[in-house]
Design a protein around this nucleic acid. Structure first.
Lengths: 138, 138
DNA sequence: GTGTAAATAGTAACGATTACGATTACTAGT
DNA sequence: ACTAGTAATCGTAATCGTTACTATTTACAC
């Protein structure tokens, strides 16, 4: 997901172009990994010390709902990253040290033929956790 | 995991047999599904209104570390259930309505040969969410 | 029974997230 | 460019789940 694509989506849905949204999207665009609301806040506080958590969470949630960001939960904390692969279904290896991800093409749902008759599947989660090569070396 | 097995593990590690622990383990033994700390509290409050969250979380964490309970995180909330399959590696379908689970024998890690060279894998999570047959019918 | 360490109650603190009323800023229409 | 109307924001407080603390009680070995 590029900045231009993100803004196009926002414009289509009549969201306004604000300084805060520009800052947030730039931050995600420049950091290709999972980030927390606190990391976003710290970045934004540089030129806007009074930034409100309300603003941050509201926008992160909006972006996530629009498919601009993708979201996961690590250690009870929401993490966000720029949507990758243009929405094509995929899974992630996630580095527990730096938040960087590596795409996993294989989706286990294809292999789950098992006894789920009568069950109504709503979603699934497959994530691998560990250290990326850069963090292993440190 | 039966109550007897749980108590054997606790005794081996010199944990004391207290009324609170008995109540907690009975509750999990009688409810074959994922439960929250709040559900445990509500159950215990029946005959012990002054039960402390400290006590509940401390014991749930202990039981989880000893492999008596297994644990997952749903919607930012810790959920616990009695260890099933005697610790053999498996995954779960989890009913988002009642917390009941269905074992999934297939582990996707076996199929992930892909580009994870140089990566240090620490763990993984594979869960399927939806409604179980009982909850579908309602 | 008694001593000792573990376990608990009661309550306060904590971090992440959400909610709120008052104010400000964006944008469409003139 | 000006203005109106609505969206977005600020500042702050409330909420939720969880953890931490100290004084007291309890389980269990002797």
């Amino acid at each position: 997901m590029t900045l231009d694509e993100a803004w196009r989506i926002l414009q289509e849905r009549q969201f306004k172009r604000t300084k805060n949204r520009e800052t947030i999207l730039e931050f995600f665009s420049d950091n290709d990994r999972y980030l927390t609301a606190m990391e976003v806040r710290n970045f934004m506080a540089a030129d806007n010390p009074g930034i409100s958590f309300d603003t941050i969470y509201r926008n992160l949630t909006t972006f996530s709902e629009l498919g601009i960001l993708e979201e996961t939960e690590l250690n009870g904390e929401r993490h966000f990253r720029m949507q990758c692969d243009h929405g094509v279904h995929h899974h992630h290896f996630i580095c527990t040290a730096c938040g960087k991800t590596q795409n996993i093409a294989h989706c286990p749902m294809e292999s789950v033929s098992v006894n789920l008759k009568g069950y109504e599947v709503e979603g699934h989660k497959f994530e691998i956790y560990g250290k990326c090569p850069v963090c292993v070396a440190q």
